[in-house]
Design a protein around this nucleic acid. Structure first.
Lengths: 115, 115
DNA sequence: ACCGTTGTACGATGTTTGTCGAATGAAAGA
DNA sequence: TCTTTCATTCGACAAACATCGTACAACGGT
């Protein structure tokens, strides 16, 4: 592959009809990734570096890929930034109530867990 | 440890207030375990050996433990049998709508996935 | 007593996963 | 052009995980 052509790997996103519930559940079962999802619910769009998580950049990158590959988030490039959004509508059309039930459950958990 | 005292490990179940969403999501993100859960939705109570999954007995035992430890199922002993039930009410009280959204999503997936 | 049934515990194995550091790429600003 | 910023890929590593075979425990029936 010609090196001059190599851009940062093109962003690929699965179509809603290819979403896999088990992949989505797995993606959401990690605390760091769940924090990302939860954060995105209150902010429409965010750059990668602005999430309140405490991991190395490369680790964060890995988590974004897991979330993107399962269909939970969408990312678009703009300059050096990568903007991230929740695919709420598409998720809800494919799996009604799923995202909301999960995030709500998580928020209940964390709220009750730390008095 | 005195060998004569050793019973089959006592069945322990977490209290609803100790349920962890991430543990539950992880438990549900495996195809074998999801099949177990889905099967339990249509049958009130089942013995371990009667689930339509294709794994070794010891593997099945492992999956039951994961589901039990996260609070998804309850098991009670009766003779040589172990009867399994879904903790639907408790789950729904703790995390409203979660179980239903997940199982429904899974059924949608499998129905659409195999034409 | 003996055997069949039911399901577990343990140890081994290969795979997946979360984590990091270092190197890289692309764009914007000095 | 040089540097800084933003985020990725790669390679490595330890921990967790799904899987199995074997051995074992408890009970029920013969």
């Amino acid at each position: 592959m010609p090196r001059s052509q190599r851009r940062r790997t093109a962003l690929t996103h699965p179509e809603p009809e290819d979403f896999d519930v088990l992949d989505i559940l797995h993606a959401m079962s990690d605390p760091t990734r769940m924090t990302i999802v939860q954060t995105l619910r209150s902010t429409p769009e965010r750059a990668c570096g602005t999430f309140p998580v405490d991991v190395a950049p490369s680790t964060l990158s890995h988590h974004f890929r897991v979330l993107r590959d399962s269909g939970v988030i969408r990312q678009r490039e703009e300059g050096t930034r990568r903007w991230t959004t929740l695919r709420e509508e598409e998720l809800d059309r494919r799996f009604p109530g799923l995202l909301d039930a999960i995030v709500t459950a998580y928020e209940t958990s964390t709220a009750a867990g730390t008095p």
